[in-house]
């Protein structure tokens, strides 16, 4: 894979792992079109973002299990999508041994964010 521009990643040949990643990027993208845009609409248009204090999140935004389930699903889906996306970016610009190191850091970052996000959405007491 080179840094040469292309309109998009070409569909990988065959049935291997790369094809799974390529398809996963696309399926998560379709889900995010709904989830991420709806999330932005709710947090920036329906409500003024500046009123959303920690107490407000507890009392209003996350006072239902359904809302938390949607947000947790979005967390998992977006982390898969952005991790696969950043993997392509890293593979384009970082070569050789350094690539393995940077990819390793990317995976650690992804796992950490999934853990932190899951922790707060699952353990913040319901009000």
């Amino acid at each position: 894979m080179s840094g040469a521009p292309r309109a998009r990643q070409p569909r990988p040949k065959g049935q291997g792992r790369e094809l799974t990643y390529w398809l996963l990027t696309r399926y998560t993208a379709l889900a995010l079109f709904v989830l991420a845009l709806a999330h932005y609409t709710v947090t920036h248009f329906v409500y003024d973002s500046s009123i959303q204090t920690a107490e407000w999140i507890k009392q209003v935004r996350w006072n239902s299990l359904a809302a938390r389930f949607v947000d947790w699903s979005m967390l998992v889906i977006v982390m898969i999508h952005s991790c696969l996306g950043m993997r392509t970016v890293v593979q384009d610009y970082v070569k050789g041994r350094a690539q393995d190191v940077v990819l390793g850091l990317l995976y650690i970052l992804t796992a950490t964010l999934v853990t932190l996000g899951s922790h707060v959405v699952l353990t913040l007491p319901l009000s």
Partner: peptide
């Protein structure tokens, strides 16, 4: 994600 973690 880090900032929302701080909510808890």
């Amino acid at each position: 994600v880090v900032s929302i973690f701080l909510v808890g």
